[in-house]
């Protein structure tokens, strides 16, 4: 697989799968205002996925469209981070996952604005405005609920403990990341990690949450090896195109 394609595809998959997960809250969030906000942010991710997957399609020679890539690939051909596909859990888990990924996206898309890939830079210029809002929103919730009632604090700490092991994968550089950073397409994951840790540690401390000990990092998404939750997510997301190939509206 060509590495430039793979680099953009991974980002598209992260946006698509996270957007799909977030959209599961539509109509089910704790209260109306939050329902609208969450669905709004989900759409930002789906919109980003469309641009990234379309761009990825132009980087390989199979002429696959955004829809081909979103709806006609199987589990092993998706390369999102595992953290994006984890089930939504309770609202504490959703917000904790959201914040940790938003903080990552904030530093990622800030840097991608100067990518040597002009299309990616343009996508990043749009995405950074959305993400600046996302991380402010989810970050505020981390403080409110972490430093909130006994129950909200307990739930946020449980969520953090559960999801923490999945954050290592965000910064695990492989040959695709090395290729991207050597060509100026993407940032150096190590520098990204330092910025992310600074923000996240500050936020978690302000929320009176205990940062988990270094634990065994859980990874596999970027090799196409997923959690048990991924199959069911794809079944729901791809159902229409699988059952009625070529369906349009």
């Amino acid at each position: 697989m060509n590495k430039h394609f793979q680099y953009v595809l991974r980002m598209g998959d992260n946006a698509l799968i996270l957007g799909q997960r977030m959209s599961e809250w539509c109509g089910h969030s704790p209260f109306l205002e939050e329902d609208i906000a969450m669905a709004n942010c989900a759409l930002d991710h789906v919109g980003r996925a469309r641009m990234l997957l379309t761009h990825a399609g132009t980087l390989e020679d199979k002429r696959r469209t955004e829809d081909d890539l979103a709806f006609l690939r199987d589990e092993r051909e998706f390369f999102n981070f595992l953290i994006c596909e984890l089930p939504i859990g309770d609202y504490a888990f959703t917000l904790m996952r959201q914040y940790l990924v938003d903080a990552y996206h904030f530093h990622l898309y800030s840097r991608l604005q100067t990518s040597s890939d002009g299309v990616l830079a343009a996508i990043a210029a749009k995405a950074i405005k959305e993400t600046t809002y996302h991380v402010r929103r989810s970050g505020d919730w981390i403080i409110k609920l972490g430093d909130g009632s006994d129950e909200s604090h307990r739930r946020m700490q449980d969520a953090l403990d559960e999801v923490w092991g999945y954050t290592g994968e965000l910064f695990a550089a492989d040959e695709v990341d090395d290729f991207a950073s050597s060509k100026g397409i993407g940032p150096d994951p190590h520098a990204l990690r330092l910025d992310w840790e600074r923000d996240v540690f500050d936020k978690l401390r302000a929320a009176t949450l205990r940062i988990p000990e270094e634990i065994w990092p859980i990874s596999g998404g970027r090799q196409g090896v997923h959690t048990e939750a991924m199959g069911a997510l794809l079944a729901e997301m791809q159902f229409l195109q699988r059952s009625y190939p070529g369906l349009n509206w």
Partner: peptide, 20 residues
Amino acid sequence: SLHAADGAQALQAARDTYTR
């Protein structure tokens, strides 16, 4: 109108509810 915990959150909820 809308519900929110404080002014900052009310502004965010208003942004999502009324200016999308």
